[in-house]
Structures are given as C-alpha cells and as structure tokens.
C-alpha cells in the first residue's frame, strides 16, 4: 500500500534552480519542490523544541515498518522526518500522520538511532496549531481540545462529559452509542466528574500570569 519514498533531483540549467521531486506515496503523487522555497532552519527549530535527536536519522525507514497506524496515515513517519530535514515546513505541518500518531513509541523501539519520533510528532502538532495550518483530522483535534477543556474545568478528565460533547459537536449522536450504553450500564462512565480542590492552581495554567495579578 505504501510506496517507497523516492527522491529525484532533476537538474535544470541553472543549478540554483534545481527542482527536487519527492514521491512519498501513491496517494500523494509526485511532488515538485523548489529548493528556494525550503525553510532551512526548520529541522533546527523542531529539534530545539522536541529534543527528538532527529539529526541522527539516516533514513533507514524502519519506523515506517513498525508503526501500527501507518495505514491511517497519509505518509509514513520517515517521510515526515524527511520533510523536516528538507525544510518542507507547510508539507510536514499539514500531514495527517502527525495527528494520527498516538505516541506508542513502536517506531522508536525499532529505530537504530533511538530517535524520539513521537516527540517530533507532538512538536509538529503544536507548531501546526500555532501557525494556523488547517488540521486534516478535525475529529482528532476536537477530541484533544475536549480532553484539555475537561482538565481545565475539573483538573481531571471526565469521560462521559467528553463523550457527550464530542457527539454534540460532531452531530453524530448515535455513532458510538452502543459502546457508550454498555459502558454506562457497567457504570464505567461516572455521571459526575471527579474534581480537584485546588482548581485555582489549574486555572492559572490556562491564563497568562498577568491576568490573575491584582494591584
């Protein structure tokens, strides 16, 4: 299902105008990349924020073999790695792959260079949000946002609340109702959230510090 990532450098007359062609996936098709448009500091920036050790990657592609979710991704993990190396900022930040990644570290356990690929994925998700890159998996983003809002509200996650909100937000009430009912009948979903006492301490994390100072 996944093609090998191919990199073809096609020479044009002017060597500064070299065009790289990258075919990461049959879904993607070949893609022409202009060298001039690359963000040469991207890899450095991702490394500084993630501490993934991504400079060590020599593109053996073991990580694509290991990832159990590769079929749900648009490009395998090593292709994201290459995009980061090449400075394909937009391309890397708009992949599904970074959002599908569940941080299971299977890839890292197979990586001969012990690179923390999941840490890189998390950093890319964060950067994609900061830079307002459209997220190709809005349902996954909604899920993360609901979990974080639940933490903001209660200091802990409230599963029933999250599930209800997700169905409300996506308008798909009955999608998972069977599992939801089974969980309810086994009392696996608490009606009332468990809440921490010092909620103020949590709320402060969600505000800039000067919002809460009083003169």
């Amino acid at each position: 299902m996944l093609n090998e990532a191919k990199l073809i450098i096609t020479d044009k007359k002017d060597p500064l105008e070299q065009i790289w062609q990258i075919g990461t996936d049959s879904l993607f098709g070949p893609k022409i990349i202009e060298v001039d448009a690359l963000d040469r500091d991207f890899a450095e920036e991702v490394e500084r924020r993630s501490h993934a050790g991504l400079r060590r990657c020599y593109f053996c592609r073991s990580c694509g073999n290991g990832c159990p979710f590769v079929t749900a991704m648009d490009v395998p993990p090593y292709a994201v790695m290459r995009m980061v190396h090449y400075g394909l900022r937009e391309e890397a930040l708009s992949t599904r792959t970074i959002w599908i990644c569940v941080n299971c570290h299977t890839c890292a356990s197979q990586c001969p260079m012990a690179i923390d690929i999941a840490a890189m994925m998390n950093t890319l998700c964060h950067m994609a949000l900061e830079e307002r890159v459209p997220v190709p998996t809005p349902d996954i983003l909604k899920f993360h946002l609901e979990v974080v809002r639940s933490i903001e509200r209660h200091g802990r996650t409230h599963k029933l609340g999250i599930m209800l909100r997700l169905k409300l937000l996506t308008g798909e009430w009955f999608k998972d109702v069977d599992v939801g009912l089974k969980m309810l009948s086994k009392r696996k979903l608490d009606l009332r959230p468990s809440r921490i006492r010092a909620l103020k301490e949590i709320h402060r994390l969600f505000l800039p510090y000067w919002r809460v100072v009083k003169p």
């Binding site: 569940v102 998390n122 949000l129 946002l145 974080v148």
Partner: peptide, 8 residues
C-alpha cells in the same frame, strides 16, 4: 494525558 502533550 496524550491530549495536552499533543496540543500544548
């Protein structure tokens, strides 16, 4: 949880 570590 995974969510906070992914988005922030």
């Amino acid at each position: 949880s995974s969510s906070a570590f992914a988005i922030d």
